[in-house]
């Protein structure tokens, strides 16, 4: 019986490794690095401006704001991009796809910093204006991945699904979306990482987040503050990318 053995080995290669210690090694290293950096900063000699801005409570607040910016904008991006991607991949909407993609392209190619300032002029400063700018910036990758994911589903499978009597909604739910899931999930992961980085610009329009540390560091010429902002943003991006990877593996349907 060689087949089951080969099968088991193959399963082993693809199985979600969430349970193994290796998966948890990466986030542990990221958290340890963040903690080490904070301990190093807090124990080094700081002047009054630095110690005020780098107080653990303040940094924690800014980090939490950053996480909020990232998650809220990502959720909104998904709420817009996934249904839109599904709609645009329907046969009756094929003609509209290039137009919508062109708009999404504009959103992505316009410099985020310009958009955020422009929106602030129009709607005033704050958290939600930053969110709108982030969403405009992040829709394209998620939208494109949803469309590509659905488009690469083998047409003979959707044909078979219709042929055995699935109504169109069921074909979408039981066949097309599960088969497109790996690509869609990859798009979500990309969006998350994109949002972590871009959320830094929220500080320009008083939207909060770790960008505040960076701008404060630059304007007051305090390198430790600037570096702390940069290091934490980078570590947060790595951590969220890891989370996205784990989610993608756990949520992707088995058997693919």
């Amino acid at each position: 019986m060689t087949a089951p053995v080969a099968e088991r080995q193959r399963e082993g290669l693809h199985a979600p490794t969430a349970r193994s210690w290796r998966t948890l090694l990466q986030p542990a290293i990221i958290l340890a690095a963040g903690l080490a950096w904070m301990v190093y900063i807090e124990t080094s000699s700081l002047d009054s401006i630095e110690s005020r801005v780098l107080a653990p409570g303040y940094v924690a607040t800014k980090t939490w704001e950053h996480v909020q910016l990232t998650l809220v904008s990502t959720l909104l991006v998904l709420a817009i991009a996934v249904p839109l991607g599904v709609a645009l991949s329907r046969r009756w909407a094929r003609r509209a796809a290039p137009v919508v993609l062109a708009f999404a392209n504009i959103g992505q190619s316009a410099p985020a910093i310009g958009v955020v300032v422009l929106l602030a002029v129009l709607w005033g400063v704050g958290f939600w204006t930053a969110i709108v700018a982030l969403v405009a910036y992040g829709v394209l990758p998620a939208l494109r991945n949803t469309m590509v994911g659905l488009r690469q589903v083998d047409p003979s499978l959707t044909d078979a699904a219709r042929g055995i009597g699935m109504p169109p909604v069921t074909v979408l739910r039981r066949v097309e979306l599960p088969l497109a899931a790996p690509v869609i999930l990859a798009g979500i992961r990309t969006t998350l990482v994109l949002m972590v980085g871009t959320a830094s610009i929220a500080s320009f329009i008083n939207g909060g987040g770790l960008g505040d540390l960076v701008t404060t560091g630059v304007t007051t010429q305090r390198t430790p503050v600037l570096l702390t902002g940069c290091v934490l943003i980078a570590l947060l991006a790595l951590l969220i990318d890891w989370l996205g990877g784990v989610a993608a593996r756990l949520l992707a349907p088995k058997g693919l």
Binding site: S156, A160, G163, I164, G165, M166, G255, L256
Partner: peptide, 22 residues
Amino acid sequence: PTELRRHIGYVIQDAGLFPHMT
């Protein structure tokens, strides 16, 4: 049509099995 198809068996080349289902 969907009701009709549930009472007509349909077999295609390569079987058209859904890979994410047992």
